[in-house]
Design a protein around this nucleic acid. Structure first.
Length: 337
DNA sequence: AAGGGCACCAACCGCCCCCAA
DNA sequence: CTTGGGGGCGGTTGGTGCCCT
């Protein structure tokens, strides 16, 4: 390629992350907090690019990430937001705090775009929208402007909701999501799964069945939590001599994952509620303050209010749509379900 | 049963922005 | 004001598993 890669070091490892690498990265971030990614490879000994470490953390290892099938509600949100914002996945992801931009982007590219294309094909049979493409490019900057407005709204909402966040255990988004069970079994590979596999390999004894069968549910979130409980239960048996992470504290790792993910369950309807993490040590507390803060803050955004804004926009949008050339997308999203 | 095609998704690449020096 | 480095973001790719013939 033209430009040398950001990490032109010889011996930088590429490709899928191993559970060992995951644990090293997680334990480092647990101790130091996310950020200063440049220092991560050198400090951890990981033969990975700093960007790769950051990406791995933000898209995969970070607590509070919801993985697996998208709900119908989330689909609607994504379709609508994509129509409004275009392919600004980070902005879209800010409305779906539990989803990463990469996840949303992948889901759009693999599922939603095809669906919409299909519907668009059907739609074109009845109505011709030949000018939409030209209008689309014309409205790029308007859409960007609108994004900024949305982000400003969100920031304002964040600021307002933050004051109450400590006193409002129930998160508005969670009941919505919790009420909609994740359809089908999850075939995704979560970080917990990888790490639990590693832990299982480390463990000479098989994991306790009681820990594995906490809920024999098809719900992906449940499987997520179950896998974490595997790691949780085995944490005390994780001997530094058996692994490569002598610098890490098994208990810390244990509590990191068990707390972070057990805290996010349909049962308690909250992401990392303060009341539900009684045994956090100082390190974990630091991590939660630093890392979970963003997701916590974002999750405090009253989604119903955001949705109201969004759909108000849709209602008030005819003039804008004409200007921005996205009427087609909105129309499709309206007829989508 | 085998292999070719397809779908999915984790991860990489490169551009851009921001900020500190 | 300039510049260089770090981090964010969006597009794209490559690997893997599933499905169909």
């Amino acid at each position: 390629m033209g430009r040398p890669p950001c990490c032109d070091k010889i011996g930088v490892k590429k490709g899928p992350w191993t559970p060992e690498e995951d644990i090293i990265l997680v334990s480092y971030i647990q101790q130091h907090g996310p950020g200063n990614w440049r220092a991560v490879p050198s400090n951890t000994g990981l033969l990975r690019c700093s960007k790769s470490c950051r990406l791995r953390w933000t898209n995969y290892l970070r607590p509070g990430i919801k993985r697996g099938n998208f709900t119908e509600h989330e689909e609607k949100m994504i379709i609508h937001l994509q129509a409004l914002l275009g392919n600004r996945w980070a902005a879209i992801a800010s409305y779906l705090p539990e989803r990463t931009d990469n996840d949303i982007k992948n889901y759009w590219n693999t599922h939603l775009r095809k669906k919409l294309k299909k519907l668009q094909g059907n739609d074109e049979n009845s109505t011709t929208s030949s000018s939409s493409q030209s209008n689309f490019s014309k409205g790029q900057w308007e859409r960007r402007l609108q994004t900024d407005i949305h982000m400003a709204k969100k920031a304002l909402c964040d600021a307002l909701s933050l004051d109450k966040s400590d006193h409002s255990p129930a998160n508005p988004i969670i009941p919505i999501l919790a009420q909609q069970p994740v359809q089908g079994s999850s075939s995704y590979a979560s970080s917990a799964e990888n790490i639990s596999k590693l832990l299982q390999n480390w463990m000479k004894n098989s994991p306790k069945p009681s820990q594995l069968s906490r809920a024999d549910s098809e719900n992906s979130q449940s499987s997520f939590n179950n896998n974490l409980s595997i790691g949780s239960g085995s944490g005390s048996s994780l001997s530094p001599s058996e692994g490569t992470i002598s610098a890490t504290t098994p208990e810390g790792f244990d509590s990191l994952f068990s707390e972070s993910c057990n805290a996010f369950t349909p049962e308690n309807n909250a992401i990392f509620p303060v009341e539900s993490k009684p045994n956090l040590n100082a390190e974990n507390e630091f991590l939660f303050q630093v890392e979970s803060k963003s997701s916590l803050e974002e999750s405090q955004v009253p989604l119903t209010l955001l949705e109201k804004w969004l759909f108000d926009d849709a209602i008030n949008a005819p003039a804008q749509e004409e200007l921005m050339g996205i009427g087609m997308g909105l129309g499709l999203s309206a007829n989508f379900f």
